Simulated assay, not measured.
Amino acid sequence: MIQKEVGITTVFVTHDQEEAMTLSDRIAVMKEGKIVQIGSPQEIYEKPVNTFVAGFIGHSNFLKGTVLEKSGDKAVFQLDSGGKLVVPVEPSDSRVQNGKPLILSIRPERIRLTQDDSANTGVKGTIKFITYVGSLSTYLVEVMGHELKVQQQNDADARAFRQGDEVCLHWSAENQTILTE
Score class of each variant (00 low, 15 high):
residue 62 F to G: 05
residue 6 V to Q: 07
residue 13 V to P: 12
residue 72 G to R: 04
residue 156 A to R: 14
residue 110 R to E: 01
residue 181 E to G: 10
residue 67 V to G: 01
residue 90 E to P: 06
residue 117 D to W: 08
residue 46 E to G: 05
residue 63 L to Q: 06
residue 46 E to W: 02
residue 95 R to N: 10
residue 71 S to C: 02
residue 58 G to N: 08
residue 159 R to M: 13
residue 129 F to D: 13
residue 148 L to P: 02
residue 89 V to Y: 10
residue 129 F to S: 13
residue 62 F to R: 10
residue 120 N to W: 06
residue 60 S to N: 01
residue 82 G to R: 03
residue 54 A to G: 09
residue 53 V to R: 14
residue 98 N to R: 08
residue 147 E to G: 14
residue 42 Q to W: 02
residue 134 G to E: 04
residue 173 A to T: 09
residue 20 A to K: 13
residue 114 T to H: 12
residue 63 L to I: 08
residue 91 P to W: 03
residue 48 P to H: 01
residue 66 T to H: 03
residue 43 E to L: 07
residue 17 Q to D: 00
residue 22 T to G: 02
residue 131 T to W: 06
residue 151 Q to G: 11
residue 104 L to M: 06
residue 134 G to R: 03
residue 148 L to F: 05
residue 96 V to S: 02
residue 153 Q to D: 08
residue 140 L to C: 04
residue 54 A to K: 12
residue 166 E to L: 12
residue 87 V to G: 01
residue 8 I to V: 15
residue 120 N to I: 10
residue 57 I to E: 04
residue 160 A to I: 08
residue 171 W to R: 01
residue 135 S to C: 10
residue 139 Y to F: 15
residue 132 Y to I: 11
residue 155 D to H: 06
residue 21 M to K: 09
residue 87 V to T: 00
residue 112 R to P: 03
residue 91 P to E: 02
residue 138 T to V: 13
residue 36 V to G: 10
residue 116 D to R: 15
residue 170 H to F: 08
residue 32 E to T: 07
residue 119 A to S: 12
residue 62 F to I: 06
residue 20 A to E: 12
residue 176 Q to R: 09
residue 104 L to R: 01
residue 105 S to H: 02
residue 88 P to L: 01
residue 52 F to A: 06
residue 171 W to K: 00
residue 181 E to H: 11
residue 101 P to D: 03
residue 178 I to V: 15
residue 180 T to K: 10
residue 40 S to Y: 06
residue 150 V to D: 09
residue 36 V to F: 00
residue 92 S to M: 02
residue 82 G to Y: 03
residue 163 Q to F: 01
residue 171 W to L: 08
residue 71 S to M: 07
residue 115 Q to H: 13
residue 42 Q to S: 13
residue 19 E to V: 07
residue 20 A to G: 04
residue 42 Q to F: 06
residue 106 I to K: 13
residue 150 V to P: 15
residue 64 K to A: 05
residue 155 D to R: 01
residue 68 L to P: 07
residue 129 F to I: 09
residue 112 R to C: 00
residue 56 F to S: 03
residue 54 A to S: 01
residue 79 L to M: 04
residue 164 G to S: 05
residue 27 I to F: 14
residue 144 M to H: 07
residue 149 K to N: 01
residue 40 S to M: 14
residue 121 T to R: 15
residue 162 R to M: 13
residue 63 L to V: 02
residue 99 G to Y: 13
residue 77 F to S: 11
residue 60 S to V: 11
residue 21 M to E: 03
residue 72 G to Q: 02
residue 179 L to A: 10
residue 26 R to P: 11
residue 97 Q to S: 12
residue 79 L to T: 03
residue 52 F to C: 12
residue 60 S to F: 00
residue 116 D to I: 13
residue 17 Q to M: 03
residue 18 E to C: 01
residue 46 E to S: 15
residue 74 K to M: 11
residue 32 E to A: 15
residue 154 N to L: 00
residue 125 G to D: 09
residue 33 G to E: 06
residue 100 K to G: 02
residue 47 K to P: 04
residue 30 M to F: 00
residue 61 N to R: 11
residue 98 N to I: 07
